[in-house]
Amino acid sequence: MLEKVVCETEVEIKNAEGLHMRPAMQFVDISNRYDSKIIVTNGKTSVDGKSIMQMSMLAATCGTKLKIKAEGPDAEAAINALQELVENEHFGESLP
């Protein structure tokens, strides 16, 4: 039986235009590479990190802090990859 790991982190949206359609797409594309369940929270609502509809409805603007929680066998790798995308690569977009 696979080991169930829970891993959590907090990230800040850094690119100027926020989590619009293209970044949301990049986010769910990475989430979907992992078996773990991914939950993203903005303090008010929690959404499925694998659904572009739910992710885009977070309406996260530049400066918004999001909690990402992964649950599953590859939780740690998933968290690392998502953190890299949001904070270091900032979706390949420009900063404000």
Partner: peptide
């Protein structure tokens, strides 16, 4: 292409169809 790709993700989004 990005526009198409985004549309594609939405169309494949199971939670959207479920809604």
């Amino acid at each position: 292409k990005d526009i198409f790709a985004v549309h594609n993700r939405f169309l494949h989004d199971r939670s959207l169809q479920k809604k």
